[in-house]
Amino acid sequence: MNGDDRIHLSYQVEGGDLTRAGEASSGVKQTLRKLGIDPGTIRRVSVCMYEGEINMVIHANGGLAMVDVGLDDITITLTDYGPGIPDIDKAMQAGWSTAADSVRDLGFGAGMGLPNMKKYSDEMKIKSIVGVGTTVTMVVKIPS
């Protein structure tokens, strides 16, 4: 990889099936390991991506996860065509969730997903249009 080259990974995330959630994140983790990325950065990317994956499975019937690996940073872009987020500020509040009881029974839906994604990324942007879908972009910087 030289300064201009970036590695692009993309994964289709299936909706509805929480038992399969994490497959894309695990795939990214394995690839980052092979690339020799440090364990701390891999962990931050894994948490960000897994939380995003769970959100897409629970709320949006799946979507597309793209990961762009450079020398200085890793950018994760999650795109779905779900219901959208009417109030992003509210969704960002720790503990706020619209997840169904069936999801909560599995240990998810505690309203910590987006706050975790913000905590473990260096930059995070959410673009959402109700009825159209949501795109979440997160950047994790690689320590030099």
């Binding site: 948490v47 599995l106 240990g107």
Partner: peptide, 26 residues
């Protein structure tokens, strides 16, 4: 609560839980 664990567990630590579903592995 899995997202609490994702946010708070320390890398290389032991995680104690009563959750036993497949998502625990991920």
């Amino acid at each position: 609560l899995l997202s609490w664990v994702m946010g708070r567990a320390v890398a290389g630590g032991a995680w104690l839980t009563i959750m036993s579903n497949v998502n625990v592995a991920a």
